[in-house]
């Protein structure tokens, strides 16, 4: 599992590879903590290399959503594989995030 974050202007790109579960909480938090916060910024969570997510990962993404401005936030979850997308949809995350 690894988490990486890159900031380009007001676009923050976070990608998670491998298993995204409670073992990732520190790394995930560290990844975006120093990135600009608030709804002026656009956040992209790249899950193309994520093999698996569990409920704590869902919690972590909600924390990121808060950081990014809560209901006014612009957070996109992109390129997740079918199994991962399934869990996001079952958890109604498509109503909170822009899932592509």
């Amino acid at each position: 599992m690894s988490v990486s974050c890159s900031v380009n202007g007001n676009i923050v790109n976070i990608s998670v590879s491998g298993r995204f579960d409670f073992g990732s909480h520190k790394d995930f938090r560290e990844a975006y903590r120093n990135a600009p916060s608030g709804s002026d910024n656009e956040y992209i969570i790249d899950l193309s290399a994520t093999e698996y997510i569990d409920s704590s990962a869902l919690g972590m993404m909600l924390l990121l959503r808060e950081h990014a401005g809560g209901d006014q936030s612009h957070v996109t979850i992109k390129e997740c594989r079918k199994e991962v997308k399934d869990i996001l949809v079952v958890s109604n995350f498509d109503k909170l995030f822009n899932i592509t």
Binding site: D54, S55, S56, L58, G59, L62, L63, R65, I87, V90, S91, L96
Partner: peptide, 15 residues
Amino acid sequence: PIKFSGRGLSLINNY
């Protein structure tokens, strides 16, 4: 308000 917890149980309920 959106809660950060309780999603595990709802996933179980769903499946």
